[in-house]
Every structure is written in structure tokens, then in C-alpha cells.
Design a protein around this nucleic acid. Sequence first.
DNA 1: TAAAAATGTAAAACACACTTGACATTTTGT
DNA 2: ACAAAATGTCAAGTGTGTTTTACATTTTTA
Lengths: 65, 65
Amino acid sequence: MHNKIKELRKEKKVTQDDLAGAVSVTRQTIISLENGKYNASLQLAHKISKYFNMKIEDVFIFEEE
Amino acid sequence: MHNKIKELRKEKKVTQDDLAGAVSVTRQTIISLENGKYNASLQLAHKISKYFNMKIEDVFIFEEE
DNA sequence: TAAAAATGTAAAACACACTTGACATTTTGT
DNA sequence: ACAAAATGTCAAGTGTGTTTTACATTTTTA
């Protein structure tokens, strides 16, 4: 699974710190998600995609398992 | 956050064990999710909603936070 | 009505999402 | 060029999702 957070964030021209604040997590969490260190929780995935006005499936890409 | 797993599962007439097998988790995990003991991971939420041919947001309900 | 199937509970163990803090590197702006 | 802002790394700690095992209760069916 990977995600489009970094792209979406740059399109919208917001900083990691801004996004982190907006969804109430640490900047470290955003960094780790963007760099594929681990996956977001369902709650966080929801907040992030809501922040970008998108569906979870359009931000987080689940390749075949 | 709550979810519609139990309802959807009964509509489709599948057992907890069937669903668990279909999404590769333990029956215990399904029980705990249905009874609100904890929330699914993003991966699992995706597998479950895909199993029911639905979007994550239509299976897992995020009340205002 | 008894056996079988389905659902539930409880607790210990493990994996991973997320935090915290401190510091290093890259990018941006003047 | 230099300072400031943004991004990244590392490591230890906390909390929670998931597994496993074993057993109890409820529901279904022959």
C-alpha cells in the first residue's frame, strides 16, 4: 500500500507541519506516512482524505495482495 | 467510529468464520470489530469493504470528531 | 430434544501506529 | 551567501490492533 499524501500536500501548498496540525498528529507521523515507513490507522486515513476532500481509496492505494 | 459489518454480514448470510477467512484474519478479530472493541486497520478496513463491494466510508462510520 | 454450528468472553503475547525529543540535511527567500 | 524554513533520520517509549488458546453461551437444525 502506498499513498498520495506528498503529492496532494504539494498541490495544495501546505507544509508537513500544517497537515500534521490539521489532522492532529505529529509531523513525524506525516513524514513516516509520506515515506512509506508504515500505514495510517483508519481514523487518520479518514481525517487526511477528508482534509483533501477525497475518498480514502483515492488517497491510499491498495495494490493487489 | 462504528461499523456495519454485522448487518452486512447477515444480509449476505455469511458466518464470522467465513468473513474472517475471506479477509485473512482470525474470527476473534471479526468478533471484536463487530462488537466495537477496537477499530480495524486501514488494510483490514479495505479488505472488508471490498468483500462487500462497498467504499470504506460506507462500511465504517466516522462520527464527528 | 439433543447434537452441531455459530457466537461470545477472557487473558497473554506480539506487531505496528504514533509520540517525543534531539539533531542533520535540504530547500527557500532576501 | 546566509539565515530561516522545511524536510529528514534515529531511537526509545506508549498504546492499540491482531493472534492464539481455551472455554462458555446461544442459535440452528435433524
